[in-house]
């Protein structure tokens, strides 16, 4: 009987949750349409390009899935600490050091068979990301220095680090851009589809998102993390070590950020390339914000943003409309989703 009541109370809540998103997306597109129209372009064709490029060709769809992977992981690297009330703005640095660690292991142990090398490569990226987020975590725990500041600053350190590794340690002289030599074949993620190529990172991201959801909703420490974020004082009063959990949340965020870098190296580039972080930090945070910090919603939002991103490059290619238009749409969506909360209050 109670089960029936629960599911009954859930149905209107679903609508309640999805409604503002639909409104936000429609309004944002309308606003962007006004600009596109004022700039003298065909608005309907632009909409069509943004929304359907991903679904028109196999290549477009694979591109979307490939963007989905780092977007999801970067968003989770933001939302897991957020659940504990901490702001991880260092996903970019964690992605970079994850990529560096993956490349280092992949190059140094290039001769190892795949069954050993691939897990090592991914593990290295996770550990590196954990360490990179662990530093702000420790500074927070020991000296109460704001993690917002330290995570951002470590991003800049990582920019220099990737340069150093790609230029000084394992440079590929043939490349015209700071790039390392390729990793061993055993460290490359296997392909799901050969042509156009899609690596298994897609499944990996979905599995990781599932694990994060399970962790936050079903485990005792996941509960404590959520309680800490909901009210650190009350969590403390009821025996939860909130300072430790804040650090833990950052370290988990770092692990996810690091893994996103490892997958980019092992799955996509097979080497370390300076600049491989793209704008995934910004997109990841946008994803997390649109999902309102809800880790369960992250994969869906990430897929939607991946569609928009692929549409954006097509927009630039075929219609000569600046791809930044899509960033504006995304930012507007965030604004409207956050605004809908204020309005309802």
């Amino acid at each position: 009987m109670s089960v029936a009541t629960i599911s009954q109370s859930r149905l209107p809540r679903w609508l309640n949750a999805v409604g503002p998103y639909v409104v936000a997306v429609v309004v944002s597109f309308a606003a962007a349409g006004v600009f596109i129209g004022l700039m003298g372009f065909n608005v309907l064709r632009a909409y069509e390009t943004i929304l359907f490029t991903s679904f028109r060709t196999p290549n477009g769809f694979i591109q979307t899935l490939l963007k989905f992977v780092p977007l999801t992981l970067q968003a989770l690297a933001f939302t897991v600490p957020l659940a504990a009330g901490k702001f991880n703005i260092g996903g970019e640095g964690q992605l970079i050091v994850g990529g560096i660690a993956a490349a280092a292991v992949g190059i140094v142990f290039a001769g190892l068979p795949g069954i050993l090398l691939l897990p090592l490569v991914l593990l290295a990226s996770v550990v590196a990301g954990a360490i990179w987020a662990g530093i702000p975590g420790w500074l927070l725990y020991r000296f109460r220095i704001s993690e917002i500041l330290t995570t951002v600053l470590l991003n800049f350190v990582s920019f220099q680090l990737v340069n150093y590794v790609a230029v000084e340690i394992w440079p590929d002289p043939a490349a015209g851009h700071p790039t390392t030599v390729p990793i061993g074949m055993g460290g490359v993620l296997p392909l799901l589809i050969r042509r156009p190529p899609l690596h298994v990172g897609f499944f990996l991201a979905i599995v990781v998102a599932g694990l994060v959801y399970f962790y936050l909703t079903r485990t005792v420490t996941g509960y404590e993390l959520v309680a800490t974020g909901a009210n650190p004082r009350a969590a403390h009063v009821y025996g939860i070590d909130v300072r430790k959990l804040s650090v833990l949340s950052l370290v988990i965020g770092g692990m996810l950020g690091g893994l996103s870098g490892g997958i980019e190296v092992a799955g996509l580039h097979h080497r370390l390339i300076e600049g491989f972080q793209s704008n995934y930090l910004t997109l990841g945070i946008l994803t997390g914000l649109i999902a309102k910090g809800n880790s369960a919603a992250v994969p869906f939002v990430a897929f939607f943003l991946a569609v928009l991103e692929v549409g954006a490059s097509a927009l630039q290619r075929t219609m000569m409309i600046p791809g930044e238009m899509v960033i504006i749409v995304e930012a507007l969506i965030v604004l409207f989703v956050l605004l809908s909360d204020v309005v309802r209050r």
Binding site: V226, A227, A230, N231, R233, A234, A235, V237, Y238
Partner: peptide, 9 residues
């Protein structure tokens, strides 16, 4: 409110 309540949970 301060010591015993998790508003966002």
């Amino acid at each position: 409110l301060e010591d015993g309540f998790l508003p966002l949970a």
